[in-house]
Write a protein that binds this DNA or RNA. Sequence first.
DNA 1: ATGCCTCAGCTCCTGAGA
Length: 260
Amino acid sequence: MKLATWNVNSLSVRLPQVLEWLAAQEAAGAPVDVLALQELKMTDDKFPAAAFQAAGYCAQWFGQKTYNGVALLSRTPATDVVKNIPGFDDDMARVIAGTVDGVRVIGAYFPNGQEPGSDKFEYKMEWLKGLRHWIKVELQSHPKLVLMGDYNITFDELDMWDPIGLKDTIHCTEEERYHLRALIALGLHDSFRLFEQPPKSFSWWDYRDMGFRRNRGLRIDHILISNALKDLTLACIVDKGPRKNERPSDHAPVVLTLNL
DNA sequence: ATGCCTCAGCTCCTGAGA
């Protein structure tokens, strides 16, 4: 089973690249089974369900105008679909969950937070708290669980191109990392770090200042897996290929392969 | 340098992203 997460920064703009990437994986003999998308930036009526259907994917989606928006594509239909965090009142479309082939898959677009101390940062902290309480409950009924998406949080200095210059800036603060570690403490694992990785592995690069070419990036897109999946993990990589497209998303897909 | 890109939209500037 192959799962991936990709913040596409507008699905309208990126749809051809998503379809091309999915087709390339299939052509290579390892099709993607589940793909979580973030930042659709479109209302539900604009979602290109027919294009994904033609490519062999069922879809669940949860959009909104201009910002946010998430979707879950899968080769077999997802069941028990949940949109946003139950019990957490939110007017932004950030979470979509579904069960695919016995695995509970949660795709999420975590709040950016803008700047420590801002109202948006406070919202990020509350959202993270709400997410954790829900995941804790989800794990009780779904031992095989994958939580993947754009976390907008780095784990540590390995995830930063400039650990000194970016110390305590957004995505790299102790408060944000506290919540990330608290998710891990529920019994989740950062699948990426279960494997040896190239130095300076990132999943996002600023569009400005030739960020990608100079590898000035952050690793903020993650795939966390539950204990029951840990020993079934075969690989986790960042696929930088799509970032080399002419009009790329600022994020690259992160891909997890399970022995399932 | 409260900028540098990119995207959406009440579009020719602004807000937001990260």
